[in-house]
Computed example of a mutant assay.
Amino acid sequence: MRSACSRQVQVALSVLVLWISALVCAPVRAQGTHTVAHMDIERNAEGLFLNVSTEFSLPGLVEDALQKGIPMTFVADAEVVRARWYWSDQIVSSVHRYMRLTYQPLTQRWRLNVSASPFDTSGLGVSVGQTYDQLPDVLGAMQRIAFWKITDSSDLDDRSSYRVHFRFQLDMSQLPRPLQIGALGRSGWNLSIARTERVPALAAP
């Protein structure tokens, strides 16, 4: 029995290695435009809230990996910085939103889990998940972030202006180790979008 189980594990590992090797060596397909189409920062009595819309298509190698059952993790970062003429800029807050995208071959459906903290080894952790029938539907959900609180009002000074740096990218550190090595320097894995907007002071200094 143990011998049979060992052979099954070896076969499964061999298949995985072949998949990863095929992905690493696969030709790179052309990529579409990756950009932040809209970014709006709302300031109210509770703090700063970010509304952002991005436009991107999955790089060919990323989509191929997903189709083969390898999950992909994306992360959105928002950093609030206070400009100071007398000293270096001050980082007021830094928040993150993690998105884990998986494809389920048996049901041919897509699963998106969203979390405010990195996913644990199970790939879940404390997260909210939703299932989609088509890839464009799940990408649409990933491309829009609405009313995301990025800092509290207690951290803001009405007399100071701020800059908000937003970035969305594929988290390469979450890829299987062979893919991390093979993806280094390959444009077919690149997905990174960034934009900065200024938040003016509410009162004169």
Rank of each mutant, 00 (worst) to 15 (best):
D157R: 10
E55L: 13
S192N: 13
M99P: 00
A26S: 15
V28I: 14
D133Q: 13
V80K: 02
R43W: 10
D133I: 05
V28Q: 11
W189S: 00
A4S: 12
P105V: 07
Q67K: 14
V128F: 07
F147V: 10
L170C: 04
L106N: 09
D157N: 13
P59W: 06
S115A: 15
R177E: 14
G188S: 05
D89R: 10
P200R: 12
F147S: 12
I20G: 01
S21L: 12
L179A: 00
S115W: 06
V126I: 13
A4C: 07
W87Y: 09
A26C: 07
K149C: 04
V9M: 10
T54K: 10
V75R: 09
P178Y: 07
L170E: 03
S57V: 12
Q67W: 12
A146S: 15
F74W: 03
A12G: 04
W110R: 05
H165I: 04
V81A: 01
V15F: 07
C5F: 14
V52Y: 05
A22D: 10
P105I: 06
G188R: 04
W148Q: 03
A65H: 06
R109K: 14
S160V: 01
V52A: 04
A194S: 15
A183V: 05
L50P: 04
S154I: 05
Y98V: 01
T107L: 11
Q104H: 14
L135G: 00
R144N: 08
A78K: 04
R111F: 08
M99K: 13
I91S: 10
N113D: 11
D40T: 11
R167H: 08
Y103N: 02
R198Q: 13
V52P: 01
V95N: 08
R163K: 11
P205A: 07
V52R: 01
L139K: 05
W85T: 12
K68N: 11
N190F: 08
A65G: 07
L179T: 01
R167I: 05
P59T: 08
S153K: 13
A204M: 15
I70G: 02
